[in-house]
Amino acid sequence: MKIAVLIKEVPDTGADRTLNQHTGLADRAASEAVLDEIGERTLEVALKILDSQPETHITVLSMGPETIQATLRKALAMGAAGAIHVSDEQLLGADLMLTAQVLAAALRRDQYDLILTGNMSTDGSAGMLPVMLAELLSLPAATSLSQITITDGVLQGTRELEGATAQVSTPLPAIASITEALPDARFPNFKGIMAAKKKPIEVLSLADLDVEALPADTARSIMLTVNQRPAREAGTIMTDDGQAATALVEFLAKNNLV
């Protein structure tokens, strides 16, 4: 079975993230770029399949800046067989549609049985890419899965809906997106790290993929303005002396909150 795992590099959510006020792009110098946490979990899903089905072939795919290569190398060390990195200056500030078109073009170059993604990225919070790929590639998409199993060419999973869960299934080939309920990734071992040095990272440009950044028939979403919000300031902080509860209720009453 051939699996593609889509991972994304994002500004670290554990630090203050900054947008450049002129370009509206993520300020890469100000905040460290890391692999989106959901991406590690997505890779782990594929690695678990590889554990039980050794003939599985995993390719990690990412569109993003140079720095993602270290992460792709780590994915190879964990057990992925190959990596594809789409990198092009024209992709700076790419919107969802362009990202989807690029990733779809990269996926069309091979026949994958399963395309795995995270349910939502922490920088864009779109939660849309998996179904956009489903439309572009004419594949079924089982999204927002908190459980996933693959047997005899059929994917089964538990889909987390708002206020409900659904048992869903689809024959492969298919796309699946997973939630953070699934476990975090394993660490690469020494043997894996050595083996990864010999594995390929294919780098592709827009020209290689035959995708145009600004085709005449496709609207793009552009950022018009960017403003930094003033930071919040601390108010009254008191240590509990037995009276704090009363003081809190008075504070709420004064602010018309009770």
Partner: peptide, 23 residues
């Protein structure tokens, strides 16, 4: 921007090549 509606939005925008503004 709920689970269901954002997927409807994404599918529709792809089909009509319209710009998506999310959340």
């Amino acid at each position: 921007h709920s689970l269901t509606s954002r997927e409807v939005a994404a599918r529709f925008a792809v089909r009509h090549k319209l710009a998506l503004s999310v959340d």
